[in-house]
Design a protein around this nucleic acid. Sequence first.
DNA 1: AGCCTCATGTAAACGGCGCTAACAATGTTA
DNA 2: TAACATTGTTAGCGCCGTTTACATGAGGCT
Lengths: 205, 205
Amino acid sequence: MNAAMGATYHHGSLRETLLDAGVELVVEAGIDALSLRELARRAGVSSAAPYRHFPDKDALLRGVAARGYQRFDQALGKVSKQCAETSALEAVQQLGVAYVRFAARNPNLFRLIFSPIGQASGHDSELDKACRQSAEHLPRALMRLHEEGIATSISVQELTELAWALVHGVAMLYLDGLVGDGKPLSAEKAAERVTQHLVALFRAD
Amino acid sequence: MNAAMGATYHHGSLRETLLDAGVELVVEAGIDALSLRELARRAGVSSAAPYRHFPDKDALLRGVAARGYQRFDQALGKVSKQCAETSALEAVQQLGVAYVRFAARNPNLFRLIFSPIGQASGHDSELDKACRQSAEHLPRALMRLHEEGIATSISVQELTELAWALVHGVAMLYLDGLVGDGKPLSAEKAAERVTQHLVALFRAD
DNA sequence: AGCCTCATGTAAACGGCGCTAACAATGTTA
DNA sequence: TAACATTGTTAGCGCCGTTTACATGAGGCT
């Protein structure tokens, strides 16, 4: 297929094009603004063409969610690597901040991946994989914590629930404008404040 | 207006009827399942009738969200009163459990009130009021904590952010099926586990 | 009572949506 | 080259949100 295509009947990479446009549209205007017809328009094909690549709109949205998870995973993975040589406590803190920062910078993608669509498992292996991968960073960092002899009285699973719930809650409340009590607190500040208490809890153990 | 109405031209309480039907529909089938036409059908009026009471669909959804917040506020208020004579720590813990329990029992309402629609402030005074009210239970309980001399090194606002983020995160992750690691953990159990760590943090302070 | 007015209902229409069916063009392979 | 599978197109269905023009009836005024 010719990459520099002109007026060919077959698009050549419609599936990818639709997913790209889908991510773009979600990022710019939110989930509700996405319609198959609009994506088809942007890709320069007819309204029915997307159905050759996705059984229905939800399937396409799962594809978009999968890409969102991949970005999320990359953002967390980057921080994990950067903190490979710091203390485990520092790594956990940084991971928490990165979690909230991603939500703040990509609110629509974040809302999508943690919506029923993004959580529909068993339909899209790519989504499932990306979801699983992005959920592994926190447990890994907490495992390091155990290895350093910190907070060993609590199981890694329970530590994960605790830390995950905390940063996820901050992220969600931040997106809803419910954190900061009026003042436009930055997402990083909010995350730092909260994760510091978490770290204090670990230290106290 | 006659309450036991027959074939009157004017409905008499269409606004309330629509909101009732809206809550019902959201509870049963989720936000996306709600359409103005369906509500009109259930109320036995024409498709355009709802526009005499709501400028658009979002306005009606805000009304539904306001009712959701009122239920939420009631659930938390009930627990607050029950815990008026217990220790402040116990009250905080019970409040956290009630928060997650409400989310688990009313997933669709919970998702609605913490969606952009439920958070749109300045449009619906009833919504704003119900939102503010339901957000006051936690700070009040944490204030009692301070009065008992617990965790006084942290401001009530910061305590609120911490506790709120934690329980909100648990609630959200629970709705997404992301807590419990496979096993069907009850919402109460999940909330208890997490809030116990929070209480431990307060005690350690 | 009769009338006016206004709130609140109806009917009909518009464009946009998800989705399907029938058909056409292209790529692939024997 | 001929058959076949893939991937496009066109046209149309029913549902949706919303608007416009019109109908009904309840309450206040004289």
